[in-house]
Design a protein around this nucleic acid. Structure first.
Lengths: 333, 333
DNA sequence: GTGAAAGCGCTAACAA
DNA sequence: TTGTTAGCGCTTTCAC
């Protein structure tokens, strides 16, 4: 059978309280006693039962992580950042995919809270009112990673999507383009893409370029949809000469679409992406892209969560990580 | 404060046993009672404490998942398969990265067992003796996903790496190549790559082609190392005319290396990959590749684990999933 | 420095 | 059909 703290206590001729103390590194134990207990623990191969410990202490040292889809590189990268920091602070993570589906998100929140996680990191492109409400009722801290909470009620970590997008579009404008397309993920109606879109429009407007709704496409964000978008856009009477893509996959689809049509990138067509995953260097030409520091976003979010779980004072709940634009060859100069 | 089963019982004028019954869907409850209890649960927003439940029932409905690196698409894909099936059977997963590091693997095993997971899915390219031994001592079932256990002691799910690789190399041989290189990940010394290498050698030998160790390169499996491998190999006196790549990234690196040198793929250089991630279609020419069904491997592994946790009878502990070769344009005909 | 004992919130016999 | 009662394995006062 499994050996319990009680077995150890008996074998070591001490009380279970003492065993508990040595297991938990409590200093109030005579070195000799500690040694004796440690020996018995080793001999019996005693392994503390974290569930019992959790019940008694009301802490599980595990945090919940709700992400849209782990098989999507973006989220996987963030997940790795989260997990690394979690490990550093001795937490384990319960990971679950929501597919951006509100019902799943709600359910996951509930089951994770049921499992008594000490905190939650949540990635969701759309913090709906219902979700928001559920999150408010959480007995443990929740931090948003890569998702902005417009009510500013929840801790969150992000980059400045608007600013980054604005700058990206500006680069294209600076290169003389008048017909600039914006191709984004399905998220056209969600937060982050909303910022990108707003920035896109603002940048054009500020440069006195008229906004043409035909040049704005929102699909599912995949390579194929980038290819498709190229098809649609290049068939326009006045096709775009530059593209602001919402993701690397999209950008590559756009570029391949152009190349398959005999167009040169960046000589004839320029493309700037928003992501800078390792894919960015795996195309010819390599992508110029806003770098979205996913790993860092995850890591910082988790770090923030540890502080919150520790009830430390937080200066600022919403942290904005710096971004930069990596210049490669899909945009001239 | 948090509301417990006891609060619900009191409010509903029943015993906690009855509340427990309705929460657990036990049929031995009069409909009227059930209704009453359900109402109170709703009103009080009672949420069962899974930790207490776990302690009492000795089941946590969570499984551990140990993978090398979630930010690597291969493992992320498998993780998604694992999680989907886990969710289907109402399990949650504790996910952790091992970086293929034995110490971490050992530690993770230990902490997960400490957390009383009901089972574990493990992905490890090298089941070392120590690891093997720790796994044997596990009180809960462990299944290996995408990793073969040479002792055949643990349940595992895989494809036939040898057969798949053999066939891949044969395609190249069939196209008339005599100088065929094998470029693989760092895993040259680990199980799966070992099979690939063996198959490569066997295929050549069977075709009376001499094995040239210079044509065998094992590096870190990244795009850059593919590029590098091209550099080294193309500088040979008798450079290879065909490549068997251990992964898509590697294959793309090889192809770009060739193209940057003005070589045509597949006219002058042919490349076959082993993976078939979505990357495979995101290059020109698109990759011909052995398809490694990662999602399925994960899903089947998890399904197998549910059976094991359920103590169902398993016909065969080691399942071999069919593979196929997806023909695209990096190999002629 | 160490021990006794009361929970933590729930499940699972066993009775009734 | 429902209630009573032991635990599950540990943490945590509170005494000594």
């Amino acid at each position: 059978m499994t050996v319990t703290i009680y077995d150890v206590a008996r074998e070591a001729n001490v009380s279970m309280a003492t065993v508990s103390r040595v297991v938990n590194g409590n200093q109030n134990v005579k070195p000799a006693t500690r040694k004796k207990v440690l020996e018995v623990i080793e001999r019996l191969e005693y392994r503390p039962n974290a569930v019992a410990r959790g019940l008694a202490s009301k802490k599980t040292t595990t945090v919940g992580v709700i992400i849209p889809d782990i098989s999507n590189n973006i989220y996987a990268e963030a997940a790795r950042g989260i997990e690394d920091i979690a490990t550093m602070y001795r937490y384990n993570i319960i990971l679950a995919n929501s597919d951006q589906n509100e019902d799943k998100e709600l359910n996951l929140l509930d089951t994770m809270l049921g499992k008594q996680v000490d905190g939650i990191v949540m990635m969701s492109d759309a913090v709906t009112p219902k979700l928001h409400q559920s999150m408010e009722h959480s007995p443990v801290p929740i931090v948003l990673a890569g998702s902005v909470d417009e009510t500013n009620q929840f801790p969150s970590v992000n980059i400045d999507y608007f600013q980054a997008s604005y700058q990206a579009v500006q680069m294209l404008i600076g290169n003389g383009h008048k017909r600039i397309a914006f191709v984004s993920g399905p998220l056209a109606y969600t937060i982050n893409s909303k910022f990108k879109l707003e920035a896109y429009k603002k940048a054009l407007t500020d440069a006195n370029i008229e906004i043409d709704e035909q040049l704005i496409i929102a699909d599912d964000g995949t390579y194929d949809s980038g290819l498709e978008a190229w098809g649609v856009l290049s068939d326009l009477e006045q096709p775009p000469t530059a593209f602001f893509a919402g993701s690397d996959e999209l950008a590559i689809g756009l570029i391949h679409g152009a190349q398959d049509n005999g167009k040169n990138v960046p000589e004839e067509i320029e493309v700037i992406s928003f992501e800078d995953s390792k894919l960015a260097r795996m195309v010819r030409p390599q992508l110029t892209s806003v770098v979205l520091p996913l790993y860092d976003i995850g890591a910082v979010a988790m770090r923030l969560l540890t502080k919150l779980m520790n009830k430390e004072n937080i200066e600022d709940q919403t942290v904005v990580i710096p971004y930069r634009i990596e210049k490669r060859n899909s945009v001239k100069s």
